[in-house]
Each structure stands twice: as C-alpha cells, then as structure tokens.
C-alpha cells in the first residue's frame, strides 16, 4: 500500500499484503538439486529402510558381516577342525579311508545309523577285529582316539555331526547333540578295551 500524509504517526490501517510477482526460478533449481542430493544421501546412508540396520552402519550386508554366524555352523566348523586333527590322517580328508589303513566313513553304514552310538563308541574307545564296511571286509585295529585326546562331550558331538552330516561326502545323517553323547558317557568311560564289530552290533542302531 502506498503511504499517505495522514499516516505520519502510524501506518496502522493498512495491513500487510503480498505482491503477486513470479517466484524466481533459481529456488526451484536449488530445490531440485537438493532433492537429488537427498536421494543419493538416503541411498548411501539409509540402510535400504531396513529396521535392522543401525547407524553408523549403512547396509544389510555390512551388518550381516559383523553378526556372529548361526550356532549350527559353529558346531560343524568345530567338528571339521577336530576331524582334521584326529581322524583325517587315516580316514583321509575325503572321508574315503585308505586300503590297508582305515575303512571309509563317507557312506559307511556304521556312521549313518539313526543314532550316533556305534560310531561314537568307535571314535572314543577304538575298534579291533574284523568288520564289514560297504560290503568290504576289513581287519585292522583303531586306537582309542577320543580317549587319548581327551575329547569333551561338545568336541565329540561336533566331530560326529561333521562326519554324519557332511554333504560333500554324500552323508546326511542327523546332527549329534551333547545330550546324546552324555547318554553314552558311562559306557565310554568304563570301557578299557577297543570294541569289536560283534559287540557293537548288539547296541541298537537308534541309540
């Protein structure tokens, strides 16, 4: 509003109004540029809007890398290490055994029983005398590896889980729990001699 002479004291009667000129273009350009930058920023830092990605991490991948692996994998990896240390020397890393040294554990009917009992007892107390594995007769002696190395229940469960469930060898028997090992602990500890195939066959294959 144009001021007039009367309003030398106060311009109170006229209230603010806005002039209807066009808005400057640069403000739209700035807005567009900032929106573009904003999209890039959210893409870089926003973690794909996933609720499990917390600052300062930026993606699901980054977070997954820092998470501890699932417990099943842990047991399997522990078993692999024990196998390499205690078993692979004779039974071979491939699990196929070696003629005149040790029968195979890959695909062996002594390993792939519903329960882990027979294989567990062999691993802990050893074996002697004739035994038929996959149609072939063997007559060798195995040391009480578990007993000599002082493997714990957890170690035994892990190594048997690894042997029984090793998909690379074609094995797919169930994982072995610590409780299953504990159930055999009295038998294992009281045994002073290696087992024979005959004795082992008396143990139900579900145990």
């Amino acid at each position: 509003m144009k001021s007039d002479a009367k309003k030398s004291v106060r311009n109170d009667e006229s209230e603010p109004k806005a002039s209807q000129t066009a808005a400057p273009v640069f403000i739209f350009v700035v807005l567009a540029l900032l929106l573009y930058w904003g999209a890039l920023h959210i893409d870089q830092y926003g973690g794909g809007f996933r609720k499990e990605v917390y600052a300062p991490f930026k993606s699901v991948k980054e977070v997954a890398k820092l998470h501890p692996k699932k417990s099943g994998d842990d047991v399997f990896e522990r078993g692999e290490k024990i196998y390499a240390l205690a078993c692979a020397g004779c039974h071979q890393p491939s699990g196929l055994g070696s003629p005149g040294v040790a029968p195979p554990v890959a695909g062996s009917e002594w390993v792939l029983t519903p329960g882990p009992g027979r294989a567990l007892l062999i691993a802990y107390n050893g074996l002697t005398g004739p035994i038929t594995v996959k149609g072939t007769e063997w007559n060798l002696a195995m040391l009480a590896m578990g007993q000599q190395l002082g493997l714990s229940d957890e170690d035994l469960a892990a190594v048997l889980t690894y042997i029984r469930g090793n998909a690379a060898w074609g094995n797919n028997a169930s994982a072995v729990t610590v409780e299953q090992v504990k159930a055999h602990r009295p038998t294992m500890d009281s045994r002073t001699q290696p087992w024979t195939a005959e004795e082992l066959l008396k143990i139900p294959e579900t145990e």
Partner: peptide, 23 residues
Amino acid sequence: PVGARLPAWMPSVSTVASVLLLV
C-alpha cells in the same frame, strides 16, 4: 541426530530434511 541409536534410515532422512529446510 546423525548418531542416534535408531535404524539408519531415520537419521539419514533427518539429515536430508534439515538440509532441505535451507530452501
């Protein structure tokens, strides 16, 4: 704030909004 212990998209959206307020 950038360091808030909240899902990362919340502070990053906040950052963008705070910069957009410049317009």
